[in-house]
Design a protein around this nucleic acid. Structure first.
Lengths: 333, 333
DNA sequence: TTGTAAGCGTTATCAT
DNA sequence: ATGATAACGCTTACAA
């Protein structure tokens, strides 16, 4: 592969001049510019971005750490980040943390040693303290779907409490008063906040939260099935079921259907996240839209603004979820 | 950030020695090794992989180009590639081509200029000739789900014809003889091969292919709906419908259900790919499993073997799809 | 076993 | 406007 040196030789100019026409940061006469361009053309010269990175101390790459690569949630997020960054000529280096503390830390180290200009993290296992000390390092750190007060300028987060509130409120407004809730693992802030929203909606409707209509699931489909099984076996009455994510809602729907429930007549079900398949379920799932793709774009924009000094970018760090009313929930008859 | 130079100073050895303990390629006495390790520890030294890449001419990164980041198909593939590569200490740089020739080429240039040690491509718009000339360059090129004779050693592909055959055969074995087919865009090799498999199955059953029971769709959900609409309007009888992918099958299922069909009694439907949501549909979709994640892993292994000289890796370039019999298709009554 | 020094392909600071 | 030349942080012959 041709180097800048060969280009300079062929064009009969110095290295520096070639570098200048590439970077357009210093005036170069039209004549020499043309000579250089021609030389590049005939040599098929492509700059070595590794060398550029070393010399300029800028890799034009941002590291992304997500829990999993598959799964609708992260894919959407990454798509949002990548498209925005790519349009700005930056690229993404992606790695996974699998929601395990060691792997998350290892992934972060990895990204940092690649000298990413910034890292965007969707971490679940690592502590706030770790993140705070991490962001004292030289690599700017951004957080997705996680709010850490000390790092608030670097957090893109969703109002999960509002989402939980909207979900429950939607069935309350349909006349339901006996509402079961399948929560996510409460050590996760999202899950806890969604539950808090649920409780707030109940409170506003003057309904006391009944712990026996509550079950802590695992955010997985099978967890949704067994949670509903548990709730049904408890012999308590409920006409609506609010789930802390779509996977569990889907599992619950399956279990309900297999046990003779007619949806939504016998039971209204609401999910959370609005993942792709929510619209493929039968009946289509009423859920809370989690604007992950938009949040991904925004994280990218934030990096573009902070790290790459791109001008005229409007930042919004806080996103509000919205209700997607579909067919799995209906007014109480 | 600490450099190798500072480490060498603190440890009282030369640069070279520090480099040696990092790379473990030359013997270093235990005593000096310890000194170096200690120095690294106290300085919190992390090697600058950019500098390593420049000096060693190896970036330890492999570029991936997929059509889209979202969508169950690519997510699975990338997950397979990433996990395998990551375990070997390599990392992935991901970019997208959006099935457009210009963007695919641009993405490839991008990856090459980042000096990836190899690139794994899932391209659709670019020509075979382009790929052939590309692979004459210095960066090794690998192809996913695309077979180019001249590059066969670098192709990981699926036997789409077999898949198409299995899909149709499954309904034939259920007693169906009037079988409609919604194909994918025929300029895509996958789509054409799936159709060929369908025809072969019909032929073996002594059923002549009926062009009026055939419709070329666009691989999208809406395309599936309108395709079925078209087929139904043609007033021809058919008891089974084979679709060239799950998205179209899903669209067809929706249309059928909305138009009073009871599935699978009134119509058996079969898809292709076994994307995540196939199992969330109602009824659950009978489909052909496309082992994308496994193929992704294999592509990574191939790179590990060819490019990074990893030993003891068994390579399989050709994958066979399998039938996933679920509830959307049933024996003809 | 360890050190010296020449790259790797750029950018960027001086001069001119 | 252009040219020398010193970084950038590491690897790797070649010497010792």
């Amino acid at each position: 592969m041709a180097t800048i040196y060969q280009v300079s030789e062929l064009a009969g100019v110095s290295l520096a001049t070639v570098s200048r026409v590439m970077n357009k940061n210093t005036k170069v006469s039209d004549k020499t510019t043309k000579k250089v361009l021609d030389a590049m053309q005939t040599l098929g010269y492509k700059p070595n971005s590794i060398a550029q990175s070393l010399a300029s101390n800028c890799t034009n790459s941002v590291g992304i750490l997500v829990s999993e690569l598959h799964g609708p949630f992260f894919a959407q997020m990454m798509a949002g980040i990548e498209s925005e960054l790519r349009a700005a000529g930056k690229h993404v280096i992606i790695t996974t943390g699998h929601s395990e503390e060691d792997k998350e830390k290892e992934g972060i180290d990895f990204l940092i040693s690649r000298r990413c200009d910034a890292i965007i993290l969707h971490v679940e296992a690592v502590t706030d303290e770790y993140l705070i000390s991490l962001s004292r390092g030289t690599t700017p750190v951004y957080l997705m779907s996680r709010y850490v007060e000390e790092l608030k300028e670097h957090c893109i987060s969703l109002d999960n409490k509002l989402g939980g509130y909207l979900a429950t409120k939607s069935v309350l407004e349909q006349g339901h008063t006996e509402i079961a809730y399948i929560a996510g693992p409460q050590f996760k802030a999202d899950a806890a906040n969604r539950l808090a929203g649920h409780k707030q909606a109940l409170e506003e409707a003057n309904i006391t939260f009944d712990p026996s209509l509550y079950f802590e699931g695992d955010f997985n489909e099978t967890g949704g099935s067994s949670a509903l099984e548990h709730l049904i076996n408890s012999k308590l009455n409920f006409t609506a079921l609010v789930c802390a994510n779509d996977e569990m809602a889907s599992g619950a729907m399956k279990y309900a259907r297999e046990h003779g429930y007619h949806l939504p007549n016998d039971l209204s079900i609401v999910g959370f996240d609005n993942v792709i398949f929510a619209n493929y379920l039968y009946p289509t799932l009423t859920t809370i839209d989690n604007p992950v793709a938009k949040m991904g774009e925004m994280a990218a924009k934030l990096v573009l603004k902070d790290v790459y000094q791109t001008k005229n970018i409007k930042i919004n760090r806080f996103f509000e979820p919205t209700l997607m009313q579909r067919d799995s929930s209906a007014p109480l008859k």
